[in-house]
């Protein structure tokens, strides 16, 4: 089962399932993360929160929360490379 944290930067996926905690799920929904929503991962460095884009808005999402969002990765399409992570981070290699 793939979750948001497993996605590398610059990839895309479709949200399949939300966390089962109602409060958390509701907050995610209000910010645009619903089952069926397409998500683009802009940044996913080691221990930092993720930066994703969905429904035309950018979100930062803690790793703990991201690990509870199940997704279905989408195949790479043309021009998907536009994301924040290129270049390298000292110590992260």
């Amino acid at each position: 089962m793939t979750t948001l944290v497993d996605l590398p930067a610059c990839s895309r996926a479709v949200v399949m399932d939300l966390p089962h905690s109602r409060g958390l799920a509701r907050r995610l929904i209000a910010l645009g993360l619903t089952p069926g929503a397409e998500v683009r991962v802009l940044q996913n460095w080691g221990r930092c929160p993720l930066i994703i884009e969905t429904h035309g808005a950018r979100l930062a999402l803690g790793r703990g929360q991201a690990a509870r969002v199940t997704v279905e990765p989408l195949p790479d399409g043309e021009g998907d490379s536009a994301c924040l992570e290129d270049g390298s981070y000292p110590g992260d290699e």
């Binding site: 460095w45 536009a82 924040l84 992260d92």
Partner: peptide
């Protein structure tokens, strides 16, 4: 997709760990 915006340019630095 593939177009880099102002925000992307700044955030490559500003949100870098």
């Amino acid at each position: 997709r593939g177009v880099t915006s102002v925000t992307d340019h700044v955030d490559r630095v500003a949100t870098h760990p």
